[in-house]
Nucleic acid binder design. Structure first.
Length: 1048
RNA sequence: GCUGAAGUGGUGGAAUUGGUAGACACGUUGGACUUAAAAUCCAAUGUCCAUUAGGACGUACGGGUUCAAGUCCCGUCUUCAGUACCA
C-alpha cells in the first residue's frame, strides 16, 4: 500500500466538488467567518508557484475555522477586466472576452488541482454584465451623492438641491470644488437647468473635471507616470505631452479624514497603515492670504508653520500658477516666460527627482506681508508643485531648508526669527525647544502658542484661518480603453446624464478594432451601436443620434479598480439570489465584512484605499452596515525565482588583415564552462587587478598587448604568473588549455582572426534542467526545442564528471526561464506536498526564493505520515490505549499548531508535524485516539491525505473514495482537538548548568525540587567540581524549571 | 533624505516573556540493503584546535546593561520595501 497521491487527490477533489463540501450557508447557528484572497487577474501565462502562496495560507485558515465551529465563507472569482487582455486583443484581434474566458479555464484547472476549499458556487467575474450592472449602479450612487461636512457623511444629492432652492449655497458645508461662487436661493431658482447641473457637478462625489494627463498621441492613450521614461512612452518610445482632458473623477478627498481615522479600527500591519497614512498625507497648519501690491489679486498659501510668518522673506509660486502671467512685470516677462517654457518640458517626476538644481525667476511683483505690511518679492520656482496645496508657498528660509537653499542661491535675505538659533550654515527646521524672536507679537512664544496666536490674528485681519491639508488627490476614474465597465452615462448639451438604474446593465458594445479612433477618441468611439434612446430606454445605433431623444453615450470605460472595490459584498449573496440586488440586506447583515483578507502589499494605495472609500460611501447611503471592508489583513510576500546560468565561452579577437572577406570567427561548437570554473577564472581576474603591480602592467593585463589579454596573458615568466599561488597556477593551466583549444579551433577554420583571450557570458537556462545540487541535465537542455540551436551541438565542460550551473535570485519571469509552474509539482509530488512546501519555505509575509530542492523533504514527511497509518497489510490503526508518550506528543502538537495558525506562522506548524510524526513513528503508535486527532490537525495543511486516512480509519479499512456512502461526512466537519495541558506535565527537567553564562552540561532533576536542593545537588555534582577547579563561586543563580548559572 | 522591516551554518529557516543558539528540512559525507540503480534506513554535519577527553570562537560590526543577550539600550554598516522639493 503505497501513498498514491495522484489518485487520492484527484478523487477527493471530485468528491468535495460533487458533495459541495465547502458551500457556505447564509443561515447558520454557527458564528460566521469570512476569509478572502485578493482578487486574481486571470493572466494568459497561468499560475506560477508564487500565486498560490496566499491562497494556501487563507485556505489553511478557512479550513481551521471550520474545525473551530465557524460557518466559513471562502469564495473565489476573477478580476477579469484589464489591460493585458486588451493588449492581446489589439495584437491578435481576438475579442478580450474570448481570451479571458480561456485564461479563466486554465486558472480554474490549476486552482482545482491544489485542493482549495473555495465555495465556487459564489464565483464572480467583474467582466460579467450581471456583475458590472452593479458596478454601474454604484457609480450612479456616487453621482447622486454629495458629502456634507456638517453631518460628516455622504447624502443624497436631492438634499443639496433642496438646500440650494431654499437657502442658496452659503450655509452649505460640503466637500466640493474650490472657488465655487456663492449664490442665493433666488439665484439658484433662476438658473437654467444646464447652469444648475454645472454647479451640482462641483459637489457630486463623482464628477467631470478637466484633468491634466500624460497624453501619448501615437498610442492614443493616457500614460501613468511610470509608463514614461525620459519623456517618451516606455512602450515604443513615442512622444508624450501634458494635456487637459475632461474625465470622471472620484471625490475620495472628501473621505480623507475618515480614511485616516478608520485605520485605527482595523487590524492591518503597521507597514501597510503607514503607507496609507503617508498617502493621505494629513498636515495641520493655516491658510494665509497675501495681497499683491498694485494688483487686485491675492495669493493663498498653505503653511504648517504659521508661527514663522515673520520669517517670510519671499514667496514662490509654481510656474504653472494662474497668477504668474498676470502679476509679472514687463521687465521680468521675458525671463519668466523662458523659465515656464523650460519647466513645462520636464515631467513632474523629473522635477521631483532633481533635488540638487535650484532654479527660479523673480516675477518683479511684490506681495504685502499681512502684519508688517512689508513688500515681499514673488518668485516662481519649479520646486513648488501646482498639484499640491495652492501651488504657492510663503518662504521662510530660516526655518525650511529648501527655502534656505533658494534664498542663498538667489541672494535673498534670511531673517532669523528663532531665539539663539544658528542659521549661518543651514535652516533651523525643528519646531521644538525654540522660542520665536523678531516677530512682533509672537516674540518669546513656542511653536504651539505662536501658531495659535498667528492664526487668531490672521483671522482678525480676514487674511487666514487654521486649515488641515491632505495630500490625497481625487482619483481619475476614466480610462480610454475598451476592456472595462462602460459608464451608464449619456450626454445632453454636453451635460452628463445618468441612465435610470432600471435599465442597467449597459453592456459593452462590439467594436471592430480595440484601438483608439483616428480622431483620438477611445475605442468605444468605434462602436456603431452606442447611443441612448431616451424614449425606448435602449442602446441604439449611432446614426439615430438627434440630440432630441437619442444622445451619444460616454466613450470612456471605468478603471480596473472599479469592479474590485466592492466584489467582497457580491460573494455574500448566493448566486441564485443575486438578480435584484448587489447583495441582499440579510446577506450583508449576516456576513458584515471580510474577517481575514490575504494579499500583496502592492495594492496599499490602490485597491485597498479605493475599496475603503466605496464602502464608506455605501454605508453613508444606507446600503451596507459596515464602515470598513477588511477587518484583518495579512500581506503575503512574493516568491522569487532562482535562475540558473551556464557560462558561454566567447572570443576576444581581432582580424589579422583588413580584408572584409572573412566572416566573424565563431567556435565550431559552442562551449560552456561550469559555474565553478567561471568563478575561479573570475576570481583570478579580479585578483590580478587588485594585486600590487604597476598601473602599466594592469593596463596590459586588462586591455591586451596585441596578442593576448586578460587571463590569456598569464603565462610563465610574466609579472602576472609570479603573483600566483599553487591553486591559482592550477586554475590558470586549465584556462590555458581551454584557450589553446579555442585558438586551434578558430585557426583551423582559417578566418583570419587573432584570438586574444576568452570572455564568459552568463546565459539563462531553464531551471527545470537543474537538480537540487545545481547539476545540469545536459541532454535535456540540448534537446529542448525552445532554445533552438543554441545548445544542440554545444559542448559542456564538466568538472569531476558534473556540470554545475550558477544561480541567482530574481523575480519570476518567462524571459528568465525561472518560472516554476505548480502543475508539474502537483504531478510529481502532489498538491499536499506543494501546499506544505509553500508554507514550509518561511514566514508568509517574507519575500523568498523558490527552490525546488527542499520539496523532497515535505514529500518524505507525507510518505512517513502515510506509513504511520498504512502498512504492507493494510491499515495499522487500532483501538490500542494511548501511552503517556503518545499523548504528550499529540497535545504538544495541538498546542503548537493552534498557536501557529492563530499567528499565521504556518512554516513552524509544518516542522511541528514532522516532529510529531517522527516521534509517533519511533513510539510505534497505532492508537486511533492519537492518530485520528492528528489528522484533523494536519487536514488544513494537507487536506487530501488527511481526508483519505480519516475515511480509512472511519471505515476501518483502506477505502475507495468513489465507493463512499452518500451520507459520509468528511474530516472537515470534525471539531479541532482540545488541548489538554495535563499530558504535558513533566516530573523532571533536564537543567542546563551554566558557568558564567556558558552551558557546560545538563543535569536531570525533579520538577518539584526546591531552589536550595537544586543548588546543593548541582554544587555537589562531580562535573561542577571539575568545572570550578577548586574556586568558590561568587553566586549561584537558580531559576526553577529553567536554568542554573554558577558565577565565579 | 525620511519612514518601516530585516541581517543567524553550505542553503531555507527555528529559538513564545532575556534562560541549553542552530529545532525542522535541504544539501554534503560515510555506512546498510542491492549485481547495479532508484527507493528506504542508520550515522555524522556551525567554524577552528585536539587522537580522545575536551577546549576556543560564534547570531552584520563596535560598545553597553545583566548572573545570563540572537532577543534589551546606544552607535555604525548593509539589504529590502514605501515615500519624497509635500510647503
Amino acid at each position: 500500500m503505497t501513498y498514491d497521491f495522484n489518485s487520492i487527490e484527484k478523487k477527493w477533489q471530485d468528491h468535495w466538488a460533487k458533495n459541495e463540501t465547502f458551500k457556505a450557508s447564509n443561515t447558520s447557528d454557527k458564528p460566521k467567518y469570512y476569509v478572502l484572497d485578493m482578487f486574481p487577474y486571470p493572466s494568459g501565462a497561468g499560475l506560477h508557484v508564487g500565486h498560490p502562496l496566499g491562497y494556501i495560507a487563507s485556505d489553511i485558515y478557512a479550513r481551521y475555522k471550520r474545525h473551530k465551529g465557524f460557518n466559513v465563507l471562502h469564495p473565489q472569482g476573477y478580476d477579469s477586466f484589464g489591460l493585458p487582455a486588451e493588449q492581446y486583443a489589439i495584437q491578435t484581434g481576438q475579442h478580450p472576452a474570448v481570451t479571458t474566458e480561456a485564461n479563466i479555464k486554465t486558472y480554474r484547472r490549476q486552482l482545482d488541482q491544489i485542493g482549495f476549499s473555495f465555495d465556487w458556487s459564489r464565483e464572480v467575474r467583474t467582466s460579467n454584465p450581471e456583475y458590472y450592472k452593479w458596478t454601474q449602479w454604484i457609480f450612479i450612487q456616487l453621482f447622486e451623492s454629495w458629502y456634507n461636512n456638517d453631518s460628516n457623511k455622504a447624502e443624497d444629492i436631492a438634499t443639496l438641491i433642496e438646500k440650494f432652492a431654499t437657502e442658496g449655497n452659503a450655509t452649505v458645508n460640503a466637500a466640493c470644488d474650490e472657488n465655487i461662487e456663492s449664490f442665493t436661493s433666488e439665484d439658484w431658482n433662476s438658473y437654467s437647468s444646464e447652469q444648475q447641473q454645472d454647479i451640482l457637478l462641483k459637489y457630486r462625489l463623482t464628477y467631470l473635471a478637466e484633468t491634466e494627463v500624460n497624453w501619448c498621441p501615437a498610442l492614443g492613450t493616457v500614460l501613468a507616470n511610470d509608463e514614461i521614461v525620459n519623456g517618451v512612452s516606455e512602450r515604443g518610445g513615442h512622444a508624450v505631452v501634458r494635456k487637459k482632458m475632461t474625465q470622471w473623477s472620484m471625490r475620495i478627498s472628501a473621505y480623507a479624514e475618515r480614511l485616516l481615522q478608520g485605520l485605527d479600527t482595523i487590524d492591518w500591519t503597521d507597514a501597510l497603515k503607514d503607507i496609507q497614512k503617508n498617502w493621505i498625507g494629513k498636515s495641520v497648519g493655516a491658510s494665509v492670504t497675501f495681497n499683491v501690491n498694485g494688483h487686485d489679486e491675492v495669493i493663498d498659501v498653505f503653511t504648517t508653520r504659521p508661527d514663522t510668518i515673520f520669517g517670510v522673506s519671499f514667496m514662490t509660486l509654481a510656474p504653472e500658477h494662474e497668477l504668474v502671467s498676470r502679476i509679472t512685470t514687463a521687465e521680468q516677462k521675458e525671463a519668466v516666460e523662458a523659465y515656464i517654457e523650460k519647466t513645462a518640458k520636464r515631467s513632474e517626476r523629473d522635477r521631483m527627482a532633481d533635488v540638487k538644481t535650484i532654479s527660479g525667476v523673480f516675477t518683479g511683483a511684490y506681495a504685502e506681508h499681512p502684519f508688517s505690511k512689508e513688500p515681499i518679492p514673488i518668485w516662481i520656482g519649479d520646486y513648488v508643485l501646482a498639484s499640491y496645496g495652492t501651488g504657492a508657498v510663503m518662504a521662510v528660509p530660516c526655518g525650511d531648508q529648501r527655502d534656505y537653499d533658494f534664498a542663498k542661491h538667489f541672494d535673498i535675505a534670511i531673517p532669523n526669527i528663532f531665539e539663539g538659533a544658528d542659521i549661518s550654515e543651514e535652516a533651523f527646521a525643528s519646531k521644538d525647544n525654540v522660542k520665536i524672536a523678531n516677530s512682533d507679537f509672537l516674540n518669546g512664544m513656542n511653536y504651539k502658542k505662536a501658531s495659535k496666536l498667528a492664526i487668531y490674528q490672521l483671522e482678525q485681519l480676514g487674511q487666514g484661518e487654521g486649515k488641515t491639508n491632505y495630500r490625497l488627490r481625487d482619483a481619475v476614474f476614466s480610462r480610454q480603453r475598451y476592456w472595462g465597465e462602460p459608464f451608464p452615462v449619456y450626454y445632453v448639451n454636453g451635460m452628463p446624464q445618468m441612465i435610470d438604474k432600471a435599465h442597467l446593465p449597459i453592456v459593452l458594445p462590439e467594436v471592430e478594432k480595440y484601438l483608439p479612433t483616428e480622431e483620438g477618441e477611445p475605442p468605444l468611439g468605434r462602436a456603431d451601436v452606442w447611443a441612448w434612446d431616451t424614449t425606448q430606454s435602449l442602446v441604439v445605433s449611432n446614426e439615430l443620434i438627434d440630440h432630441k431623444t437619442v444622445f451619444p453615450l460616454e466613450l470612456n470605460t471605468m478603471p480596473g479598480w472599479a469592479g474590485s472595490s466592492w466584489y467582497f459584498f457580491r460573494y455574500m449573496e448566493d448566486a441564485a439570489n443575486r438578480d435584484g440586488v448587489f447583495a441582499s440586506e440579510d446577506a450583508l447583515k449576516y456576513w458584515e465584512n471580510v474577517d481575514l483578507y490575504i494579499g500583496g502589499s502592492e495594492h496599499a494605495t490602490g485597491h485597498l484605499l479605493y475599496s475603503r472609500f466605496w464602502v464608506k460611501l455605501l454605508k453613508d447611503r444606507g446600503f451596507v452596515n459596515v464602515e470598513e471592508p477588511f477587518k484583518k489583513l495579512i500581506n503575503q510576500g512574493m516568491i522569487l525565482g532562482t535562475s540558473a546560468f551556464v557560462y558561454r565561452v566567447d572570443l576576444l579577437s581581432h582580424l589579422s588583415t583588413t580584408s572584409k572577406d572573412f566572416k566573424d570567427p565563431s567556435l565550431s561548437k559552442a562551449l560552456y564552462i561550469s559555474y565553478d570554473s567561471f568563478k575561479k577564472y573570475e576570481d583570478l581576474y579580479k585578483f590580478i587587478l587588485s594585486s600590487k603591480i604597476s598601473a602599466e602592467d594592469k593596463n596590459t593585463f586588462a586591455n591586451g598587448n596585441g596578442f593576448t589579454k586578460g587571463l590569456a596573458s598569464i603565462i610563465e615568466d610574466t609579472v602576472f604568473f609570479d603573483l600566483l599561488n599553487d591553486d591559482q597556477k592550477e586554475t590558470i593551466s586549465t584556462f590555458q588549455e581551454l584557450y589553446k583549444a579555442v585558438q586551434k579551433d578558430i585557426y583551423s577554420q582559417n578566418t583570419g582572426a587573432i584570438i586574444e583571450g576568452l570572455n564568459f557570458s552568463a546565459i539563462h537556462v531553464k531551471v527545470q534542467y537543474v537538480n537540487a545540487s545545481d547539476e545540469l541535465d545536459i541532454e535535456g537542455l540540448k534537446t529542448d526545442g525552445e532554445f533552438g540551436e543554441d545548445f544542440k551541438d554545444a559542448e559542456f565542460i564538466s568538472e569531476d564528471g558534473v556540470y554545475k550551473v550558477g544561480r541567482d535570485v530574481e523575480k519570476m519571469s518567462k524571459s528568465k526561464y525561472n518560472v516554476v509552474n505548480p502543475d508539474s509539482i502537483c504531478a510529481d509530488y502532489g498538491a499536499d506536498s506543494l501546499r506544505l512546501y509553500e508554507m514550509f519555505l518561511g514566514p508568509l509575509e517574507q519575500y523568498k526564493p523558490w527552490n525546488t530542492a527542499g520539496i523532497t523533504g515535505v514529500h518524505n514527511f507525507l510518505k512517513k505520515l502515510w506509513k504511520l497509518y498504512v502498512g504492507d497489510d493494510g491499515l495499522k490503526v487500532n483501538n490500542a490505549q494511548p501511552t503517556a508518550d503518545n499523548l504528550k506528543t499529540l497535545h504538544k502538537t495541538i498546542k503548537k499548531v493552534e498557536e501557529d495558525i492563530e499567528n499565521f506562522s504556518f512554516n513552524t506548524s509544518v516542522s511541528t508535524f514532522m516532529i510529531a510524526v517522527n516521534e509517533l513513528t519511533a513510539q510505534k503508535c497505532t492508537s486511533k485516539d492519537i492518530l485520528e486527532p492528528l489528522l484533523i490537525l494536519i487536514s488544513p495543511y494537507a487536506p487530501h491525505i488527511a481526508e483519505h486516512l480519516y475515511a480509512c480509519i472511519h471505515f476501518n479499512k483502506i477505502i475507495e473514495v468513489e465507493n463512499l456512502p452518500k451520507d459520509f461526512e468528511g474530516i472537515s466537519t470534525l471539531d479541532f482537538p482540545e488541548f489538554d495541558a495535563s499530558h504535558l506535565v513533566e516530573s523532571s527537567k533536564k537543567y542546563p548548568i551554566s558557568f558564567n553564562g556558558k552551558m557546560r552540561f545538563t543535569l536531570e532533576l525533579p520538577m518539584d525540587m526546591s531552589k536550595d536542593d537544586i543548588e546543593k545537588t548541582v554544587m555537589a555534582h562531580e562535573k561542577t567540581i571539575a568545572q570550578l577547579e577548586g574556586r568558590t563561586p561568587k553566586k549561584v543563580i537558580v531559576v526553577p524549571g529553567k536554568i542554573v548559572n554558577i558565577v565565579g
